[in-house]
């Protein structure tokens, strides 16, 4: 479904060029859920943005559903295959657009007909119900906003969802609801996920395989089972797992 080879991403121009990602490579099978973990600045979100076409300063090879992409240009078919959910639900909805406006614009852009019925279905799918259709973002809680963002991503009926820390701005009880929703949607629509998080437990819960990143490099790719056992090959991975298990008094 997704194949990334030898990916370099950088920001700025020589001589101030900063490498954000260095020779990253991984592939994700259809229907799989793949995690990218690492601390801030490790380049995990940058990879997602490069795939989505939101960054054009990259080199290497990115293949989505067997088709290579280039730069930041993407065609219509790409947006029907790949969609993204962003980290901060307070920043990912236009403050002046109601839920209805967001979803109907999205559906129209994707060339869908029968917009009324589809909006109702999307809202039902993400567990909001039609009562939310005409609300503005400031009338929604963080969890409800994230549900709208997920509905927007689903509107195009994509096969690959890029999830950029979708729950890190939410309370734990709301996080549980959103993670359950994402798991249900994946089962229902046969979606493939690439999920970025700094929270190992969330990745362990959601993904089958994951890549551990540090300073722009993928240190290792491991299974969620190995993560649970705390069995990383790299000392950094083991440190990260130990640290995220919680605080133990020195």
């Amino acid at each position: 479904m997704l194949n990334v080879e030898n990916l370099d991403v950088w920001f700025g121009h020589d001589p101030d060029r900063v490498a954000a990602v260095t020779s990253a490579a991984f592939s994700v099978a259809p229907g799989e859920s793949f995690g990218l973990v690492g601390e801030s600045g490790s380049g995990k979100s940058t990879i997602l943005r490069a795939i989505a076409g939101l960054i054009d300063s990259w080199s290497g090879r990115i293949e989505v559903a067997g088709k290579p992409v280039a730069g930041s240009r993407r065609d219509r078919a790409f947006y029907k295959t790949v969609q993204m959910v962003f980290q901060d639900p307070y920043a990912s909805l236009h403050p002046r657009h109601s839920v209805d406006a967001v979803l109907s614009e999205t559906l129209r852009l994707q060339g869908m007909g029968d917009i009324d019925r589809r909006i109702t279905r999307l809202l039902d799918d993400v567990g909001l119900g039609r009562g939310f259709r005409f609300r503005y973002p400031h009338q929604l809680s963080g969890g409800q906003r994230q549900r709208v963002a997920i509905a927007r991503a689903l509107a195009a009926e994509p096969r690959l969802l890029l999830l950029d820390e979708p729950t890190s701005a939410l309370d734990v009880s709301v996080q549980a609801e959103i993670l359950n929703l994402l798991a249900d949607l994946r089962a229902e629509h046969g979606l493939t996920y690439v999920m970025v998080s700094h929270d190992l437990a969330v990745i362990g819960h959601m993904c089958e395989r994951l890549a551990v990143m540090q300073q722009g490099r993928i240190l290792e790719i491991m299974s969620a089972d190995a993560l649970r056992r705390g069995a990383g090959d790299d000392p950094y991975t083991r440190r990260l797992i130990a640290a995220s298990a919680g605080y133990s008094r020195a």
Partner: peptide, 15 residues
């Protein structure tokens, strides 16, 4: 409702 590495569950209990 917290996912845990040491105790995996299929679905997270919701509050």
């Amino acid at each position: 409702s917290l996912p845990r590495l040491d105790a995996p569950v299929a679905r997270l209990p919701v509050l």
